[in-house]
Amino acid sequence: MGQDIPRAFRLLAAPAALFSFALFLAPLLLMLSLAFRDPQPGLQNFGWMATSSAVGKIVWATFRFSAIASVISVMLGFAVAYAIWLSGRTLSLVLLFVVLVSFWLSVLIRCFALILALGPNGPVNATLAALSLGPVRLIRNEPGVLLGMVHYLIPFAVLTILAALRGIDLSLVAAARSMGAHRARVFRTVVLPLAAPGAFAALALTFVIALGFYITPALLGGGRVVMIAEFITFHVQNVLAWGKASALAIFLIAAIGASYGLVKLPEMLMRQRRAA
């Protein structure tokens, strides 16, 4: 595909590449190199990371919450994307608008909104109490963290999956229907396989975003859910152990790269199979 572009044109990418390197990549590498030289040169920061039981527990919590949140987000996001895809023009625009509005709101504002809405004196608990079903503790616990994470991740899933669905040729659906397939059968044998790469992309994207969560677990978890980002902050700000923070950051970046590759793998295999 690169062959179609004249070689000289590739130089057009140079300013942006240089900009990214000088202002993002170089400082990032400098920062990450602290892991090997702070407080003294050596690998002691990685040794600490490999042996500390606290690190193990926090890494496990980060992966567990990220996995659950991204799977739920993709399932719910698929339903929303499917509804937008199949709705009439007006309704699909309204649904898309709702998704985009929540997408554009800052994570902090969404967190506080959830605290207000789901707190003991919030409208949700007032309704539950009126129906004598509550009050229920919806935040400051593990389900609260998952709720906040899924709330943040769903728009990412919807937009990614919707792009995949919109790439599906609707005449294939019509053809399947004309051959007598039920809606469920059409979904299972036509839509789902064609949209699967989009769903996998959404899974990779939401999982990778979830790994870096900081505000949401800190505010909605009642302090009982500690993820890697918060642990890094503690080492940067409170104890000035920048070497340890940097080692944790290297681990997080590696984990993000590995998870992205792992989730992208089936998608790539599927593409190859189709191309073959």
């Binding site: 500390s52 978890g221 409170n238």
Partner: peptide
């Protein structure tokens, strides 16, 4: 403090 975070974390 690291021990404390480990204790209180889920």
């Amino acid at each position: 403090q690291t021990k404390f975070l480990e204790l209180i974390a889920a």
